[in-house]
Design a protein around this nucleic acid. Sequence first.
DNA 1: CGGAATGTTGAGCTGCTTCAATCGTCGTGG
DNA 2: CCACGACGATTGAAGCAGCTCAACATTCCG
Lengths: 242, 242
Amino acid sequence: MAVDCLNCPLRALPVFAPMDEREVAFMRDFKSGERHVSRGDVVVREGEHASHMYTVIEGMGLRSKTLPEGERQVINVLLPGDFVGMQSGVMGEMKHSVEAITDMRLCAFPREKFFGMYQTMPSRAFDATWLAALEEHFLGDHLAVVGRLPGRQRVAWALLRYYDRLEQLALARNGRAPMPLKQRDVADLTGLSLVHTNKTLRALRRRNIVTWRQEVLEIHDNDALVEEAGTPYQDREARPLL
Amino acid sequence: MAVDCLNCPLRALPVFAPMDEREVAFMRDFKSGERHVSRGDVVVREGEHASHMYTVIEGMGLRSKTLPEGERQVINVLLPGDFVGMQSGVMGEMKHSVEAITDMRLCAFPREKFFGMYQTMPSRAFDATWLAALEEHFLGDHLAVVGRLPGRQRVAWALLRYYDRLEQLALARNGRAPMPLKQRDVADLTGLSLVHTNKTLRALRRRNIVTWRQEVLEIHDNDALVEEAGTPYQDREARPLL
DNA sequence: CGGAATGTTGAGCTGCTTCAATCGTCGTGG
DNA sequence: CCACGACGATTGAAGCAGCTCAACATTCCG
Protein backbone atom coordinates (compact mmCIF):
# COMPACT_ATOMS: atom_id res chain seq x y z
CA MET A 1 0.00 0.00 0.00
CA ALA A 2 1.26 3.42 -0.87
CA VAL A 3 2.56 5.56 1.93
CA ASP A 4 0.65 8.71 2.60
CA CYS A 5 2.75 11.70 3.58
CA LEU A 6 0.64 12.09 6.71
CA ASN A 7 2.06 8.95 8.20
CA CYS A 8 5.34 8.80 6.37
CA PRO A 9 7.55 6.44 8.36
CA LEU A 10 10.65 8.47 7.62
CA ARG A 11 9.38 11.75 8.89
CA ALA A 12 9.19 10.36 12.42
CA LEU A 13 12.92 9.71 12.58
CA PRO A 14 14.96 12.21 14.54
CA VAL A 15 17.48 12.56 11.71
CA PHE A 16 14.90 14.45 9.75
CA ALA A 17 13.88 17.98 10.55
CA PRO A 18 10.21 18.36 11.51
CA MET A 19 7.74 19.54 8.91
CA ASP A 20 4.71 21.63 9.71
CA GLU A 21 1.16 20.86 8.60
CA ARG A 22 1.20 23.16 5.62
CA GLU A 23 4.37 21.58 4.41
CA VAL A 24 3.04 18.08 4.75
CA ALA A 25 -0.10 19.11 2.91
CA PHE A 26 1.99 20.60 0.18
CA MET A 27 4.06 17.46 -0.19
CA ARG A 28 0.95 15.33 -0.45
CA ASP A 29 -0.11 17.43 -3.34
CA PHE A 30 3.34 17.55 -4.87
CA LYS A 31 3.70 13.78 -4.73
CA SER A 32 2.36 12.09 -7.82
CA GLY A 33 2.69 8.50 -6.72
CA GLU A 34 5.17 5.81 -5.94
CA ARG A 35 7.61 3.89 -8.01
CA HIS A 36 8.87 0.46 -7.21
CA VAL A 37 12.05 -0.87 -8.70
CA SER A 38 13.77 -4.19 -8.32
CA ARG A 39 17.31 -4.94 -7.29
CA GLY A 40 19.55 -4.31 -10.25
CA ASP A 41 17.21 -1.91 -12.03
CA VAL A 42 18.36 1.47 -13.19
CA VAL A 43 16.33 4.22 -11.55
CA VAL A 44 17.66 7.11 -13.62
CA ARG A 45 20.40 7.15 -16.18
CA GLU A 46 23.20 9.66 -16.63
CA GLY A 47 22.29 12.17 -19.33
CA GLU A 48 18.61 11.42 -19.05
CA HIS A 49 15.96 14.12 -18.88
CA ALA A 50 14.01 12.51 -16.12
CA SER A 51 10.34 13.38 -15.82
CA HIS A 52 10.30 12.69 -12.10
CA MET A 53 12.29 13.27 -9.00
CA TYR A 54 12.22 10.91 -6.06
CA THR A 55 12.68 10.52 -2.38
CA VAL A 56 13.76 7.05 -1.37
CA ILE A 57 11.24 5.52 1.01
CA GLU A 58 12.69 2.08 1.30
CA GLY A 59 15.61 0.14 -0.08
CA MET A 60 19.07 1.09 -1.23
CA GLY A 61 20.76 2.25 -4.39
CA LEU A 62 24.01 3.60 -5.77
CA ARG A 63 24.68 6.88 -7.48
CA SER A 64 27.52 6.48 -9.94
CA LYS A 65 29.30 8.03 -12.86
CA THR A 66 30.86 6.14 -15.73
CA LEU A 67 34.00 7.40 -17.40
CA PRO A 68 34.71 7.10 -21.13
CA GLU A 69 36.79 3.95 -20.74
CA GLY A 70 34.05 2.36 -18.70
CA GLU A 71 35.48 2.89 -15.23
CA ARG A 72 32.76 3.36 -12.68
CA GLN A 73 32.95 5.67 -9.71
CA VAL A 74 30.31 5.29 -7.08
CA ILE A 75 29.34 8.73 -5.81
CA ASN A 76 27.46 7.51 -2.79
CA VAL A 77 25.07 5.00 -1.38
CA LEU A 78 21.45 5.99 -1.62
CA LEU A 79 19.42 5.35 1.51
CA PRO A 80 15.88 6.09 2.64
CA GLY A 81 15.28 9.82 2.87
CA ASP A 82 17.75 10.61 0.10
CA PHE A 83 16.55 12.67 -2.79
CA VAL A 84 17.13 11.62 -6.40
CA GLY A 85 16.98 13.83 -9.42
CA MET A 86 17.71 17.30 -8.15
CA GLN A 87 19.96 17.79 -11.15
CA SER A 88 17.34 16.91 -13.68
CA GLY A 89 14.96 19.09 -11.69
CA VAL A 90 17.03 22.22 -12.00
CA MET A 91 19.45 21.63 -14.85
CA GLY A 92 17.25 19.41 -16.93
CA GLU A 93 19.60 16.48 -17.11
CA MET A 94 20.95 13.86 -14.75
CA LYS A 95 24.68 13.95 -14.26
CA HIS A 96 24.96 10.51 -12.77
CA SER A 97 23.10 7.23 -12.79
CA VAL A 98 21.20 5.59 -9.99
CA GLU A 99 20.95 1.84 -9.71
CA ALA A 100 18.93 -0.13 -7.17
CA ILE A 101 20.93 -2.61 -5.10
CA THR A 102 17.88 -3.84 -3.29
CA ASP A 103 14.24 -3.56 -4.24
CA MET A 104 13.28 0.04 -3.67
CA ARG A 105 10.22 2.09 -3.03
CA LEU A 106 10.40 5.68 -4.20
CA CYS A 107 8.14 8.62 -3.61
CA ALA A 108 7.70 10.31 -7.00
CA PHE A 109 7.41 14.02 -7.71
CA PRO A 110 6.72 15.36 -11.18
CA ARG A 111 9.46 17.60 -12.43
CA GLU A 112 7.08 20.13 -13.91
CA LYS A 113 5.70 20.94 -10.50
CA PHE A 114 9.12 21.48 -8.99
CA PHE A 115 9.38 25.15 -9.80
CA GLY A 116 5.90 25.61 -8.41
CA MET A 117 7.31 24.65 -5.07
CA TYR A 118 9.54 27.70 -5.24
CA GLN A 119 6.55 29.89 -5.93
CA THR A 120 4.21 28.58 -3.29
CA MET A 121 6.20 26.88 -0.56
CA PRO A 122 9.46 28.74 0.06
CA SER A 123 10.36 26.76 3.13
CA ARG A 124 10.35 23.56 1.10
CA ALA A 125 12.31 25.21 -1.68
CA PHE A 126 14.85 26.24 0.90
CA ASP A 127 15.03 22.67 2.10
CA ALA A 128 15.69 21.50 -1.44
CA THR A 129 18.68 23.81 -1.60
CA TRP A 130 19.73 22.57 1.78
CA LEU A 131 19.72 19.02 0.52
CA ALA A 132 21.76 19.97 -2.51
CA ALA A 133 24.27 21.75 -0.31
CA LEU A 134 24.39 18.80 2.04
CA GLU A 135 25.08 16.47 -0.83
CA GLU A 136 27.84 18.77 -1.93
CA HIS A 137 29.31 18.58 1.53
CA PHE A 138 29.26 14.79 1.58
CA LEU A 139 30.81 14.67 -1.83
CA GLY A 140 33.56 17.00 -0.72
CA ASP A 141 34.37 14.73 2.19
CA HIS A 142 34.30 11.76 -0.09
CA LEU A 143 36.68 13.44 -2.49
CA ALA A 144 39.07 14.32 0.32
CA VAL A 145 39.08 10.74 1.57
CA VAL A 146 39.61 9.23 -1.86
CA GLY A 147 42.13 11.83 -2.90
CA ARG A 148 44.19 11.92 0.24
CA LEU A 149 43.96 8.78 2.30
CA PRO A 150 45.55 5.37 1.79
CA GLY A 151 43.41 2.34 1.04
CA ARG A 152 42.99 0.98 4.55
CA GLN A 153 41.65 4.30 5.75
CA ARG A 154 39.34 4.68 2.81
CA VAL A 155 37.75 1.31 3.33
CA ALA A 156 37.41 1.79 7.07
CA TRP A 157 35.89 5.21 6.49
CA ALA A 158 33.43 3.87 3.95
CA LEU A 159 32.22 1.12 6.28
CA LEU A 160 31.93 3.48 9.19
CA ARG A 161 30.01 6.03 7.23
CA TYR A 162 27.74 3.42 5.80
CA TYR A 163 27.00 1.94 9.19
CA ASP A 164 26.41 5.26 10.86
CA ARG A 165 23.98 6.38 8.24
CA LEU A 166 22.03 3.17 8.58
CA GLU A 167 21.98 3.45 12.31
CA GLN A 168 20.56 6.95 12.09
CA LEU A 169 17.77 5.51 10.00
CA ALA A 170 17.16 2.75 12.52
CA LEU A 171 18.19 0.22 9.89
CA ALA A 172 21.16 -0.96 11.87
CA ARG A 173 22.05 -1.36 15.52
CA ASN A 174 24.47 -3.07 17.85
CA GLY A 175 27.06 -3.02 15.12
CA ARG A 176 24.96 -5.12 12.78
CA ALA A 177 23.76 -3.80 9.45
CA PRO A 178 22.36 -5.23 6.24
CA MET A 179 24.97 -5.08 3.52
CA PRO A 180 23.62 -5.44 0.00
CA LEU A 181 26.74 -3.83 -1.49
CA LYS A 182 29.21 -6.05 -3.28
CA GLN A 183 32.96 -5.74 -2.82
CA ARG A 184 32.99 -4.35 -6.34
CA ASP A 185 30.78 -1.50 -5.12
CA VAL A 186 33.02 -0.74 -2.17
CA ALA A 187 35.97 -0.72 -4.55
CA ASP A 188 34.25 1.73 -6.87
CA LEU A 189 33.26 3.83 -3.88
CA THR A 190 36.76 4.06 -2.49
CA GLY A 191 38.66 4.28 -5.75
CA LEU A 192 40.51 1.04 -5.12
CA SER A 193 40.78 -2.07 -7.25
CA LEU A 194 38.51 -4.95 -6.44
CA VAL A 195 41.41 -7.17 -5.45
CA HIS A 196 42.93 -4.65 -3.14
CA THR A 197 39.58 -3.91 -1.56
CA ASN A 198 39.20 -7.58 -0.85
CA LYS A 199 42.62 -7.78 0.75
CA THR A 200 41.98 -4.70 2.82
CA LEU A 201 38.74 -6.17 4.08
CA ARG A 202 40.49 -9.41 4.86
CA ALA A 203 42.90 -7.49 7.06
CA LEU A 204 40.01 -5.98 8.99
CA ARG A 205 38.47 -9.39 9.35
CA ARG A 206 41.74 -10.97 10.50
CA ARG A 207 42.05 -8.40 13.24
CA ASN A 208 38.47 -9.18 14.18
CA ILE A 209 37.34 -5.60 13.65
CA VAL A 210 34.55 -6.34 11.21
CA THR A 211 32.96 -9.33 9.57
CA TRP A 212 30.93 -9.22 6.42
CA ARG A 213 29.20 -12.23 4.97
CA GLN A 214 25.79 -13.20 3.76
CA GLU A 215 24.99 -9.59 3.12
CA VAL A 216 25.39 -8.72 6.77
CA LEU A 217 28.03 -6.34 8.06
CA GLU A 218 29.10 -6.60 11.67
CA ILE A 219 31.33 -4.11 13.36
CA HIS A 220 32.88 -5.86 16.34
CA ASP A 221 35.32 -3.19 17.35
CA ASN A 222 34.03 0.26 16.56
CA ASP A 223 36.93 2.03 18.25
CA ALA A 224 39.47 0.14 16.22
CA LEU A 225 37.57 0.91 13.05
CA VAL A 226 37.42 4.60 13.88
CA GLU A 227 41.12 4.44 14.65
CA GLU A 228 41.74 2.76 11.32
CA ALA A 229 39.67 5.32 9.45
CA GLY A 230 41.45 8.24 11.06
CA THR A 231 38.50 10.46 10.19
CA PRO A 232 35.66 10.37 12.65
CA TYR A 233 32.35 10.44 10.84
CA GLN A 234 30.03 12.82 12.61
CA ASP A 235 27.12 14.34 10.76
CA ARG A 236 24.30 14.00 13.18
CA GLU A 237 22.33 17.17 12.77
CA ALA A 238 18.78 16.94 11.56
CA ARG A 239 18.39 17.45 7.84
CA PRO A 240 15.35 18.15 5.71
CA LEU A 241 13.32 15.41 4.10
CA LEU A 242 11.57 16.03 0.81
CA MET B 1 34.76 51.63 -7.26
CA ALA B 2 32.15 49.11 -6.33
CA VAL B 3 30.35 47.35 -9.10
CA ASP B 4 26.66 48.04 -9.32
CA CYS B 5 24.55 45.05 -10.30
CA LEU B 6 23.11 47.07 -13.15
CA ASN B 7 26.37 47.01 -15.01
CA CYS B 8 27.85 43.89 -13.53
CA PRO B 9 30.65 42.85 -15.87
CA LEU B 10 29.98 39.16 -15.35
CA ARG B 11 26.32 39.23 -16.25
CA ALA B 12 27.20 40.16 -19.82
CA LEU B 13 29.11 36.94 -20.40
CA PRO B 14 27.32 34.27 -22.40
CA VAL B 15 28.18 31.61 -19.83
CA PHE B 16 25.71 33.18 -17.48
CA ALA B 17 21.99 32.91 -17.95
CA PRO B 18 20.24 36.23 -18.48
CA MET B 19 18.51 37.92 -15.58
CA ASP B 20 15.39 40.03 -15.92
CA GLU B 21 14.97 43.52 -14.50
CA ARG B 22 13.13 42.45 -11.41
CA GLU B 23 15.86 39.98 -10.63
CA VAL B 24 18.60 42.54 -11.06
CA ALA B 25 16.71 44.95 -8.85
CA PHE B 26 16.34 42.26 -6.24
CA MET B 27 20.04 41.46 -6.30
CA ARG B 28 20.93 45.09 -5.87
CA ASP B 29 18.90 45.12 -2.75
CA PHE B 30 20.17 41.76 -1.57
CA LYS B 31 23.79 42.79 -2.01
CA SER B 32 25.19 44.44 1.08
CA GLY B 33 28.53 45.54 -0.30
CA GLU B 34 31.84 44.26 -1.53
CA ARG B 35 34.69 42.55 0.17
CA HIS B 36 38.26 42.68 -0.98
CA VAL B 37 40.77 40.10 0.09
CA SER B 38 44.43 39.73 -0.69
CA ARG B 39 46.28 36.78 -2.11
CA GLY B 40 46.79 34.27 0.63
CA ASP B 41 43.91 35.46 2.79
CA VAL B 42 41.29 33.08 4.06
CA VAL B 43 37.84 34.08 2.82
CA VAL B 44 35.85 31.66 4.95
CA ARG B 45 37.04 28.92 7.21
CA GLU B 46 35.76 25.37 7.54
CA GLY B 47 33.39 25.11 10.48
CA GLU B 48 32.73 28.83 10.53
CA HIS B 49 29.25 30.30 10.81
CA ALA B 50 29.79 32.91 8.16
CA SER B 51 27.64 36.02 8.29
CA HIS B 52 27.87 36.58 4.56
CA MET B 53 27.74 34.73 1.29
CA TYR B 54 29.63 35.86 -1.76
CA THR B 55 29.79 35.82 -5.48
CA VAL B 56 33.31 36.15 -6.83
CA ILE B 57 33.57 39.22 -9.03
CA GLU B 58 37.25 39.13 -9.71
CA GLY B 59 40.24 37.04 -8.79
CA MET B 60 40.69 33.41 -7.91
CA GLY B 61 40.54 31.20 -4.87
CA LEU B 62 40.59 27.60 -3.73
CA ARG B 63 37.95 25.65 -1.90
CA SER B 64 39.58 23.00 0.23
CA LYS B 65 39.07 20.56 3.08
CA THR B 66 41.68 19.62 5.62
CA LEU B 67 41.79 16.13 7.05
CA PRO B 68 42.71 15.30 10.66
CA GLU B 69 46.34 14.54 9.84
CA GLY B 70 46.62 17.81 7.97
CA GLU B 71 46.31 16.54 4.41
CA ARG B 72 44.64 19.09 2.22
CA GLN B 73 42.24 18.25 -0.59
CA VAL B 74 41.39 21.03 -2.97
CA ILE B 75 37.73 20.77 -3.88
CA ASN B 76 37.88 23.17 -6.77
CA VAL B 77 39.24 26.40 -8.11
CA LEU B 78 37.04 29.38 -7.44
CA LEU B 79 36.61 31.73 -10.38
CA PRO B 80 34.54 34.83 -11.09
CA GLY B 81 30.84 34.03 -11.01
CA ASP B 82 31.27 31.27 -8.46
CA PHE B 83 29.22 31.42 -5.32
CA VAL B 84 30.74 31.02 -1.88
CA GLY B 85 28.94 30.15 1.28
CA MET B 86 25.85 28.27 0.21
CA GLN B 87 26.52 25.81 2.98
CA SER B 88 26.65 28.40 5.70
CA GLY B 89 23.56 29.94 4.09
CA VAL B 90 21.43 26.85 4.43
CA MET B 91 23.14 24.62 6.97
CA GLY B 92 24.61 27.35 9.10
CA GLU B 93 28.20 26.20 8.85
CA MET B 94 30.86 26.06 6.18
CA LYS B 95 32.05 22.61 5.32
CA HIS B 96 35.21 23.70 3.58
CA SER B 97 37.59 26.63 3.58
CA VAL B 98 38.16 29.18 0.88
CA GLU B 99 41.53 30.79 0.37
CA ALA B 100 42.38 33.55 -2.08
CA ILE B 101 45.19 32.73 -4.50
CA THR B 102 45.06 36.17 -6.08
CA ASP B 103 43.61 39.37 -4.74
CA MET B 104 39.85 38.99 -4.98
CA ARG B 105 36.79 41.14 -5.15
CA LEU B 106 33.64 39.57 -3.77
CA CYS B 107 30.06 40.65 -3.92
CA ALA B 108 28.66 40.19 -0.41
CA PHE B 109 25.17 39.08 0.58
CA PRO B 110 24.03 38.97 4.18
CA ARG B 111 23.07 35.54 5.30
CA GLU B 112 20.01 36.72 7.21
CA LYS B 113 18.42 37.95 4.01
CA PHE B 114 18.98 34.66 2.19
CA PHE B 115 15.76 33.05 3.21
CA GLY B 116 13.96 36.21 2.24
CA MET B 117 15.01 35.46 -1.31
CA TYR B 118 12.99 32.26 -1.16
CA GLN B 119 9.95 34.20 -0.01
CA THR B 120 10.06 37.03 -2.47
CA MET B 121 12.07 36.00 -5.51
CA PRO B 122 11.44 32.34 -6.31
CA SER B 123 13.31 32.44 -9.61
CA ARG B 124 16.48 33.50 -7.81
CA ALA B 125 15.91 30.88 -5.14
CA PHE B 126 15.60 28.31 -7.88
CA ASP B 127 18.87 29.53 -9.33
CA ALA B 128 20.55 29.10 -5.96
CA THR B 129 19.48 25.48 -5.96
CA TRP B 130 20.69 25.20 -9.50
CA LEU B 131 24.11 26.39 -8.49
CA ALA B 132 24.25 23.96 -5.62
CA ALA B 133 23.26 21.13 -7.95
CA LEU B 134 25.83 22.25 -10.49
CA GLU B 135 28.53 22.25 -7.89
CA GLU B 136 27.47 18.78 -6.92
CA HIS B 137 27.82 17.73 -10.52
CA PHE B 138 31.33 19.15 -10.82
CA LEU B 139 32.34 17.54 -7.59
CA GLY B 140 31.04 14.21 -8.81
CA ASP B 141 33.14 14.48 -11.94
CA HIS B 142 36.11 15.46 -9.86
CA LEU B 143 35.63 12.47 -7.61
CA ALA B 144 35.39 10.14 -10.58
CA VAL B 145 38.59 11.51 -12.06
CA VAL B 146 40.53 11.33 -8.81
CA GLY B 147 39.10 7.98 -7.87
CA ARG B 148 39.43 6.24 -11.17
CA LEU B 149 42.06 7.75 -13.44
CA PRO B 150 45.86 7.48 -13.32
CA GLY B 151 47.98 10.52 -12.56
CA ARG B 152 48.73 11.65 -16.09
CA GLN B 153 45.06 11.77 -16.93
CA ARG B 154 44.18 13.58 -13.74
CA VAL B 155 46.69 16.31 -14.33
CA ALA B 156 45.76 16.72 -17.97
CA TRP B 157 42.10 16.84 -17.01
CA ALA B 158 42.73 19.45 -14.33
CA LEU B 159 44.63 21.72 -16.69
CA LEU B 160 42.03 21.35 -19.39
CA ARG B 161 39.16 22.06 -17.09
CA TYR B 162 40.93 25.02 -15.62
CA TYR B 163 41.71 26.48 -19.00
CA ASP B 164 38.24 25.93 -20.38
CA ARG B 165 36.60 27.60 -17.43
CA LEU B 166 38.86 30.60 -17.80
CA GLU B 167 38.20 30.80 -21.50
CA GLN B 168 34.46 30.83 -20.87
CA LEU B 169 35.02 33.80 -18.61
CA ALA B 170 37.13 35.55 -21.25
CA LEU B 171 40.09 35.34 -18.91
CA ALA B 172 42.06 33.14 -21.28
CA ARG B 173 42.38 32.73 -25.00
CA ASN B 174 44.61 31.25 -27.67
CA GLY B 175 45.76 28.63 -25.23
CA ARG B 176 47.18 31.19 -22.84
CA ALA B 177 45.87 31.59 -19.33
CA PRO B 178 47.01 33.19 -16.10
CA MET B 179 48.07 30.52 -13.62
CA PRO B 180 48.27 31.66 -10.03
CA LEU B 181 48.04 28.07 -8.77
CA LYS B 182 51.14 26.43 -7.37
CA GLN B 183 52.15 22.90 -8.18
CA ARG B 184 51.22 22.08 -4.61
CA ASP B 185 47.67 23.21 -5.42
CA VAL B 186 47.48 21.05 -8.51
CA ALA B 187 48.76 18.15 -6.44
CA ASP B 188 46.09 18.70 -3.81
CA LEU B 189 43.49 19.06 -6.54
CA THR B 190 44.38 15.82 -8.26
CA GLY B 191 45.17 13.76 -5.19
CA LEU B 192 48.78 13.24 -6.22
CA SER B 193 51.97 13.98 -4.33
CA LEU B 194 53.76 17.19 -5.11
CA VAL B 195 56.77 15.38 -6.54
CA HIS B 196 54.72 13.21 -8.80
CA THR B 197 52.69 16.16 -9.99
CA ASN B 198 55.89 17.89 -10.90
CA LYS B 199 57.13 14.91 -12.88
CA THR B 200 53.82 14.52 -14.63
CA LEU B 201 53.91 18.17 -15.65
CA ARG B 202 57.47 17.76 -16.84
CA ALA B 203 56.33 14.97 -19.14
CA LEU B 204 53.70 17.25 -20.65
CA ARG B 205 56.29 19.95 -21.07
CA ARG B 206 58.81 17.59 -22.65
CA ARG B 207 56.28 16.55 -25.22
CA ASN B 208 55.60 20.20 -25.83
CA ILE B 209 51.94 19.92 -24.98
CA VAL B 210 51.88 22.62 -22.33
CA THR B 211 54.27 25.05 -20.73
CA TRP B 212 53.75 26.68 -17.41
CA ARG B 213 56.06 29.27 -15.99
CA GLN B 214 55.90 32.71 -14.48
CA GLU B 215 52.29 32.10 -13.53
CA VAL B 216 51.27 31.66 -17.16
CA LEU B 217 49.88 28.45 -18.54
CA GLU B 218 50.14 27.80 -22.25
CA ILE B 219 48.45 24.95 -23.98
CA HIS B 220 50.33 24.34 -27.20
CA ASP B 221 48.62 21.18 -28.30
CA ASN B 222 45.04 21.07 -27.16
CA ASP B 223 44.25 17.85 -29.00
CA ALA B 224 47.13 16.06 -27.38
CA LEU B 225 46.04 17.31 -23.98
CA VAL B 226 42.48 16.17 -24.54
CA GLU B 227 43.85 12.84 -25.70
CA GLU B 228 45.96 12.65 -22.56
CA ALA B 229 43.03 13.51 -20.33
CA GLY B 230 40.80 10.91 -21.90
CA THR B 231 37.76 12.75 -20.58
CA PRO B 232 36.58 15.60 -22.74
CA TYR B 233 35.52 18.50 -20.59
CA GLN B 234 32.34 19.97 -21.95
CA ASP B 235 30.03 21.94 -19.74
CA ARG B 236 29.12 24.85 -21.87
CA GLU B 237 25.51 25.50 -21.05
CA ALA B 238 24.58 28.81 -19.51
CA ARG B 239 24.36 28.72 -15.74
CA PRO B 240 22.84 31.13 -13.26
CA LEU B 241 24.81 33.90 -11.64
CA LEU B 242 23.92 35.05 -8.16
C1' DC C 1 71.20 40.85 -0.20
C1' DG C 2 69.40 37.12 2.31
C1' DG C 3 65.76 34.09 3.58
C1' DA C 4 61.59 31.83 2.34
C1' DA C 5 58.80 29.79 -0.93
C1' DT C 6 58.54 27.18 -5.08
C1' DG C 7 60.18 24.19 -8.52
C1' DT C 8 63.22 20.24 -10.11
C1' DT C 9 65.43 15.95 -9.99
C1' DG C 10 67.25 11.41 -8.48
C1' DA C 11 66.87 7.19 -5.71
C1' DG C 12 64.65 3.67 -3.43
C1' DC C 13 60.67 1.65 -1.69
C1' DT C 14 55.73 0.04 -1.26
C1' DG C 15 50.88 0.31 -1.90
C1' DC C 16 48.22 -0.80 -5.21
C1' DT C 17 47.32 -2.68 -9.80
C1' DT C 18 46.67 -6.29 -13.18
C1' DC C 19 46.64 -10.99 -14.37
C1' DA C 20 45.22 -15.42 -13.47
C1' DA C 21 43.29 -19.11 -10.91
C1' DT C 22 40.35 -21.31 -7.66
C1' DC C 23 36.43 -21.70 -4.75
C1' DG C 24 31.82 -21.09 -2.75
C1' DT C 25 26.98 -20.01 -3.35
C1' DC C 26 22.85 -19.76 -5.42
C1' DG C 27 19.30 -20.03 -8.94
C1' DT C 28 17.77 -22.68 -12.95
C1' DG C 29 16.71 -26.21 -16.02
C1' DG C 30 17.00 -31.04 -17.09
C1' DC D 1 17.83 -34.12 -7.00
C1' DC D 2 21.78 -33.06 -9.35
C1' DA D 3 24.54 -30.58 -12.87
C1' DC D 4 25.59 -26.48 -14.76
C1' DG D 5 26.54 -21.70 -15.21
C1' DA D 6 26.81 -17.11 -13.37
C1' DC D 7 28.29 -14.28 -10.07
C1' DG D 8 30.92 -12.96 -6.27
C1' DA D 9 34.73 -13.78 -3.08
C1' DT D 10 39.48 -15.14 -2.31
C1' DT D 11 44.23 -15.69 -3.00
C1' DG D 12 48.95 -15.65 -5.08
C1' DA D 13 52.33 -13.58 -8.07
C1' DA D 14 54.59 -10.08 -10.55
C1' DG D 15 55.12 -5.39 -11.95
C1' DC D 16 54.82 -0.51 -11.82
C1' DA D 17 52.73 3.92 -10.64
C1' DG D 18 53.18 6.86 -7.35
C1' DC D 19 55.09 7.76 -2.68
C1' DT D 20 58.70 9.50 0.56
C1' DC D 21 63.18 11.14 1.36
C1' DA D 22 66.75 14.12 0.27
C1' DA D 23 69.27 17.50 -2.37
C1' DC D 24 69.70 21.26 -5.07
C1' DA D 25 68.16 25.12 -8.18
C1' DT D 26 65.42 29.00 -8.91
C1' DT D 27 62.38 32.68 -8.13
C1' DC D 28 60.14 35.79 -5.19
C1' DC D 29 59.99 39.30 -1.84
C1' DG D 30 61.05 42.22 2.00
